[in-house]
Structure formats: structure tokens, C-alpha cells
Design a protein around this nucleic acid. Structure first.
Lengths: 188, 188
DNA sequence: CTCTAAGCGGAGGATTATACTCCGCTTGTG
DNA sequence: CACAAGCGGAGTATAATCCTCCGCTTAGAG
């Protein structure tokens, strides 16, 4: 594969991730190509159909997130810290795109990768529980949904940087709310 | 105005709110009419253009939310409780639609209504602060953004009821995280 | 440096989604 | 009962998006 081709492929994937997160849905293909500063023809050469594009996007994102998670788990001082790092990294790496494109995915080694991500998350959550840093009733599923929600755009016309900053702030707020020391958890 | 006409108008507004929340953006007009179980012609008779429809939706939602907020403020035992009630009611009444349609709004008595809602929220937050039930650095703006985020769809294919239940759960988590007793609020 | 196959761009036709009108039929109400 | 107010939805206009195709450009081997 020629060097320029590889570079364009990367740009396309990154642009696709960004756009999916910005619009909170499937973006127009032309928009992806334009954002990547390549012609539409180039997009269709690399990814002849929706399937292949989104599949590549999903793997791209999941791989980065899994890597980051493993690192967080290895390095962090304790479970709570590992969890915090993982969540912030997941947002930065655009894990949220999965919620949007996952209905379109049916590639063979997709379930396996997905399982790997899930067991990693469970490991982190378990550790946080062991270290007494999470409420009893807080589950790995909770964490997953919080991450997904934090990745969704607010649709409020904010520039991307602000949007991202808010996502991180909300992650922190939720983490505080899921932390063992926090007191009441009533429902209205 | 004939009784059936009024009823259809209501149905259209409710359907519009639901759909905006479900898709997290401007829904197709046909979809709104279909959801309301009326013909498209009926939609266009009541709301000849996008402006008039979305303006009516915005007022509908804001009025309900303001009413609910005033009630919460009057009834609740303390600021923390008022805040909690307000947030849950805001989600139930679909306050989140405003974030999506507000760029389209330019009706005369819209800013005034908006100001009313904002001062109400500030009053509730101030009270919560006075009652020592909120962290110092938690602002009315934080609350607003948390509500908006909770109203956004997760894009995960959940049925509406589950989606709503999760929204409430996340409101509770965030409230716990913004509550004065919660300890650390570090950032990654 | 030359040559060529791999790669590129983007105009433009095909397709699909959405907007909106129009008019004959139905129904609430005085 | 009369009839104006209201209704439905087929159908056309418009706009967005998809995707192909082919002549031009360029990386990189020899």
C-alpha cells in the first residue's frame, strides 16, 4: 500500500469518528471526505460501502480504547483511579461512536473484540469495588451508559472544544456520584 | 376553535416533543403527523411553517417546566429536595427539546419566558446552596447542562421507557455527584 | 531520470428523503 | 339540517445524499 493511500485512510477514519460524535448520528459520506480533505472518490475506493467504513471505524476506536484501558489498569494506583482514567480516555478516543454504528456491524471478529472490551471494563469495575471506591449498586453497565451519554453532543451549538470539556466535567460529576463515599441516592 | 381541532393541535405538540427527544434532532414533519395520527394537511393547517410549530413546542414545554419548578420550589422541604424534584420534572416534561430547537426561535415573548425559567432555576440552586446541599463550585449552568444531557437519546436502540428510566438514573447519579457531602472532585 | 501502476479528485446522473399544496370528503355545532 | 370549519393524504416540487466513472497526478521501483 502506497504511503499516501495509508495516510488518507487514517484521515478518513479520524474524520469519520469526529463527525459521528459531532452530529450524533451517521454523517453524510461527502462530509466525511470533505473533513478529511480528500475527494469522495478516495473515500469510496478505501471503503466501498457503509459496512466496510463503519466496521473500520469501530475497530479503530475499540482498539484504541482497549489499549488505553489496559494501560490505565496496569498503571493506576487503585481501582478508583483506574476507572477514572479509563472513562476519560474512552471519551477522548471516541468510544461513543459505537453506540451509533453498532447496529450496522456484523463482521466476524467484532464480537470477540467487543467481549474483550467488556471484560476489561468489568475488571476495572471489580477492582474499584474491591478497593471500596464505588457504591455497591453501581455496575459496569452503569459505567458504560455514562460513557455513552458523555459522548453524545449537547446540540447546543457549542464549539467542539467546549463540548469535549463539558463531557469530561460530566464524567467527573458522575464519578463523584458513583463513588462509595457519596451519601444519599434517593429517587424522586 | 372547534373541539377536534384543539385536540389535534395538542396531539401534534406532544408528538413533536416526543419525536424531537427520540431522534435528538429535528424530525421529519410527516413523522410528527403520523405519530399524532393525523394527516399531514392537518399539521400544516395548524403550523404553516417550521417556525410556528417549533415556537409552539418551545412554549408548551417551557410553560410546563416553569409550572413544575414553581411547585417544586413551593412544596419541597429544602433546597436539595426542590432541586431534585425540578430536575426530574424537567426531564419528564421534555425540557431537552429546547436545546435542539432554540436556534430556530425568534418569537417576541420568547426571551421573556426564557428569562423567567432561568431565574427560577437560579432561585432553586441558590436555595440548595443555602441549605448546604450542593458543592460550592456547582452552578445553575451545571444543572442546566446536566438536564440537557439527560434528555438526549442514547442512540442505543432502547425502548422509550428504558431510555427515560436511564435518564432519571443519571439525574440521580449527577445529583449525588453535585451534592455537598460527596468528597473528592478530582480531574484526570 | 523515466515509466507506470496505484492513487487521486470531483463532476454529474441516479436515488431517496423531505417539504408542502390542493381539493374532495367528513364532522362538529348553531 | 345546513354549512363552515376541519380533515386526510395523493402527488408534485425540492433538496439531500449516494455512488460511478474517467482523465489527471504522483509515489516509488528500476
Amino acid at each position: 500500500m502506497r504511503a499516501d493511500a495509508r495516510r488518507n485512510r487514517e484521515r478518513l477514519l479520524d474524520s469519520a469518528v469526529d463527525l459521528i460524535l459531532e452530529v450524533g448520528g451517521e454523517p453524510a459520506r461527502d462530509a466525511i471526505a470533505h473533513r478529511a480533505e480528500v475527494g469522495i472518490g478516495t473515500l469510496y475506493r478505501h471503503f466501498p460501502d457503509q459496512q466496510s467504513l463503519f466496521h473500520a471505524v469501530a475497530l479503530h476506536v475499540l482498539d484504541r480504547t482497549i489499549g488505553a484501558g489496559e494501560l490505565a489498569l496496569a498503571d493506576a494506583a487503585n481501582g478508583g483511579e483506574a476507572l477514572r482514567r479509563y472513562m476519560h480516555l474512552a471519551v477522548d478516543h471516541g468510544l461513543g461512536v459505537l453506540s451509533i454504528i453498532h447496529p450496522l456491524l456484523d463482521h466476524p471478529h467484532w464480537p470477540q473484540q467487543r467481549a474483550r472490551a467488556e471484560s476489561l471494563l468489568r475488571a476495572i469495575v471489580d477492582l474499584a469495588h474491591q478497593d471500596g471506591m464505588m457504591k455497591r449498586d453501581a455496575t459496569a453497565q452503569d459505567i458504560g451508559f455514562v460513557i455513552i451519554r458523555a459522548c453524545r453532543p449537547l446540540a447546543v451549538g457549542l464549539p467542539l472544544a467546549d463540548e469535549r470539556a463539558l463531557a469530561h466535567r460530566h464524567i467527573d460529576i458522575c464519578l463523584d456520584g458513583l463513588t462509595a463515599s457519596a451519601s444519599q441516592s434517593s429517587s424522586a
